[in-house]
Amino acid sequence: MAKTIQTVLKTHGLSRATPAAVQAALPKPGPLAAPVADFRTRMLQHIEHEAAKLPAGATWLASSDIIELVFGHYKAFTARGPLKEVGRMVRLIPALLSQLTAPRMRGAIRSVRTVDVKQWVHAHLGPSMLARRRRVLRPDMKPA
Rank of each mutant, 00 (worst) to 15 (best):
I5C: 00
I5D: 02
Q6E: 15
Q6C: 09
T7H: 14
L9S: 07
T11D: 15
T11L: 13
G13D: 09
G13W: 00
L14G: 12
L14Q: 08
S15G: 10
S15Y: 02
S15N: 07
S15H: 02
R16L: 03
R16Q: 13
A17T: 03
P19C: 09
A24Q: 04
A25N: 02
P29E: 11
P29W: 02
P31N: 11
L32K: 05
R40A: 00
R40G: 02
T41I: 02
M43W: 01
M43T: 00
H46G: 12
I47V: 14
E48W: 01
E48Y: 01
A52H: 00
A52L: 00
A52P: 03
K53I: 05
L54K: 07
P55T: 14
A56M: 08
G57E: 04
W60L: 15
L61G: 13
S63D: 14
S63K: 08
D65G: 10
D65K: 09
I67N: 15
I67K: 15
I67Q: 15
I67G: 15
F71S: 11
H73E: 06
F77W: 12
A79E: 14
G81D: 11
G81I: 14
P82I: 13
L83F: 13
K84E: 13
E85I: 13
V86W: 03
G87K: 03
G87D: 08
R88Q: 10
M89I: 04
V90Y: 05
R91C: 08
P94D: 00
P94A: 01
A95H: 05
L96Y: 02
T101R: 01
T101G: 01
A102R: 00
R104P: 06
M105G: 07
G107N: 07
A108V: 08
V112L: 15
V117Q: 09
V117M: 13
K118S: 11
A123W: 01
G126K: 03
G126F: 03
S128I: 05
S128A: 05
S128Q: 08
L130N: 03
R133V: 10
R133G: 13
R135A: 15
R135D: 14
V136Y: 15
P139K: 04
P139Q: 09
D140Y: 14
P143R: 14
P143A: 11
A144F: 14
A144C: 13
